[in-house]
Each structure stands twice: as C-alpha cells, then as structure tokens.
Simulated scan of single mutants.
Amino acid sequence: MKKTLHHVFSFFMAFAVLFSTLSFTVESHYCGNRLVDTAVFTKVKSCGMGTSASIPVKKGCCKDKVELVKGQDELKLNSSEALDFDQQFGLATLMYSYGSLFKGMSKLVFPHKNYRPPHVICDIIILGETFLI
C-alpha cells in the first residue's frame, strides 16, 4: 500500500512539473468583431475574406490575435552544496543513526519459531478443580 501510494504521488508530482513548465500559444482569427477560429497547437484557419479577388473587402477587417501562455522557465534545483558543513554533518549523522535502527531486523533469530506445544488431551485445571480466585 505504501509503495503504491508513493508511485501515485510521484506520478502526480511529475505531471505537476510537466504542466507548470509547458508553454503554448493560443491563436484566434477575427473577421470584423466575429470570432472565426481558435487554435492551440496548430495554425488558425482564416475566413478567406482577404484572399478572394472577386469580393470587395474592406481593408483591415480581419485580424489575428496571438496569446502566449508562458510556463515556468526556471526550476530551482537544490543540491547538497547549498548546506553548510554543520548541516551536512547533522544530516549525515541523522541518516546513519536512523538507518542503523532497522538493520538486521530481518535476520533476527526466533528460538521458539519451530516450537510445537504438546497436544492437550484434557484440561488439567478443570480435572483437579483448582481455580484462582
């Protein structure tokens, strides 16, 4: 359970870093005051008003609007060089002492591991009628 929770948390943290650093553009094409098309990762389609030679078009009726959604471009990477000597020494001591608490736990010898209690045929306390009060 703990390992699965760790994997799920790591997965969501990786996506958080990915989406916080992602940059993209949103392009919109307006013909007059009317929105014709909006595109996120592709080129925006125009309305075709400016390309047709047979239709008289008022100059400047179409316009393209480009919005840049900028992600974070600087990530702060922490390293052990940011800590001074006393902090590094304290951290190393803590990790060593905490890690040594759990070493050898799997190799403990249990002397009663293979002990089988004797087979009880009758209850001797009831048989002798000796009860603790």
Results as ranks from 00 to 15, higher is better:
M1N: 07
K3P: 01
T4V: 12
L5F: 13
H6F: 15
V8N: 09
S10V: 02
M13T: 04
A14S: 13
F15K: 05
L18P: 01
T21Y: 00
S23G: 08
S23T: 11
F24C: 01
T25P: 01
S28T: 10
S28I: 00
H29A: 02
C31R: 12
C31K: 11
G32V: 05
R34K: 11
V36F: 14
D37Q: 04
T38E: 14
V40T: 10
V40A: 09
F41A: 01
T42P: 02
V44L: 11
M49H: 12
M49Y: 04
G50P: 03
G50A: 09
T51A: 09
S52K: 05
S54V: 09
I55C: 06
V57N: 08
K58F: 07
K59E: 15
G60S: 10
C61E: 09
C62N: 07
K63V: 03
D64H: 11
K65L: 13
V66K: 07
E67G: 00
V69S: 03
G71C: 07
Q72D: 06
Q72L: 13
L75V: 13
N78Y: 08
S79T: 15
S79L: 09
S79R: 06
S79P: 01
S80P: 04
E81Y: 04
D84E: 08
D84P: 03
Q87E: 14
G90E: 13
L94A: 12
M95V: 06
Y96D: 13
Y98H: 08
S100M: 14
L101K: 13
K107L: 13
V109S: 11
F110T: 00
P111C: 04
K113G: 02
N114Y: 11
N114M: 08
R116K: 15
P117N: 05
P118E: 12
H119W: 04
V120W: 00
V120D: 01
C122T: 12
I124G: 03
I126Q: 14
I126S: 14
I126N: 15
E129Y: 00
E129I: 06
E129F: 02
T130S: 07
T130L: 13
L132R: 01
